[in-house]
């Protein structure tokens, strides 16, 4: 059998302060294949954000292993992790996290700067993904001249531009009005249909339902993992 894109086994994450030990994730085992659209759900404090940070190699597990695209990330240096984030992962954040006073096209060019792609190619690629997001007429607008939905589409363009193996979205619609949220979800579904792997964190069921698979976390454990249809039944039972 071909290896999964993401293979997590026996993963634990424990936060230690001076006199407190907080087990945020316990014994997570997870396989996600290329081309999946997964939503990770759970109430606040369930560890879903921590799980996403670990999947995005922004954070490392306390114990257990995480293979991303066949590579054990636990053994990598800071700079190697930076390269993985640069080339294999595209982040979409709840607060968009665009650079202020920086045009949409320059924001999209940022990860390509870090990859050392020549400027002329950067411009072509950035314009292409922004056009895909329907933002061709907003290329030179700084974030404060864009609506929330437009800002999030710039952020998705930035996540896409390096052709990453996974797109990781952390509450991508959390700050956006519902009409625009539907637009964002439509974009994700289209991207997924085009073959992109998407992992999305949300606490809203109607958003999670856009995914093909929903993983439910509670108290740091996976309590349910299945398709959207099953999930709906579970939510009703709860």
């Amino acid at each position: 059998m071909r290896d999964s894109l993401i293979k997590v086994s026996g993963l634990n994450k424990i936060y230690r302060t001076d006199d407190l030990e907080l087990k945020v994730l316990s014994d997570i085992n997870l396989h996600i294949d290329a081309g999946e659209f997964v939503a990770i759900m759970g109430p606040s404090g369930s560890g879903k954000s921590t799980l996403m940070h670990i999947l995005g190699v922004l954070d490392l597990p306390t114990s257990g292993t995480y293979y991303l695209d066949g590579q054990n990330v636990g053994s990598l240096s800071d700079d190697e992790l930076a390269d993985i984030r640069n080339k294999k992962i595209g982040f979409v954040f709840q607060a968009y996290n665009l650079l202020p006073r920086t045009s949409a096209v320059e924001n999209v060019m940022l990860p390509m700067d870090y990859a050392g792609i020549p400027d002329t190619d950067q411009l072509i690629l950035a314009k292409r993904v922004l056009a895909m997001m329907g933002l061709s007429d907003r290329l030179d607008h700084p974030p404060n001249k864009l609506s929330g939905g437009q800002q999030q589409r710039v952020a998705i363009a930035r996540a896409l531009v390096m052709q990453p193996a996974i797109i990781l979205a952390d509450e991508p619609t959390g700050n956006i009005a519902s009409v625009q949220a539907e637009e964002i979800m439509a974009i994700f579904q289209k991207l997924n249909a085009d073959g992109h792997t998407i992992i999305m964190i949300t606490h809203e069921l109607n958003i999670a339902e856009h995914a093909k698979r929903i993983i439910h976390l509670f108290d740091g454990r996976v309590i349910e993992d299945g398709n959207g249809h099953q999930q709906r039944r579970i939510s009703k039972k709860l």
Binding site: N86, N97, L99, Y114, R158
Partner: peptide, 16 residues
């Protein structure tokens, strides 16, 4: 700090 975090998330190495 947040901007630095974002840049690192986008793949900025220490040197950058």
């Amino acid at each position: 700090t947040r901007e630095i975090g974002l840049r690192k998330a986008l793949g900025a190495r220490k040197k950058v």
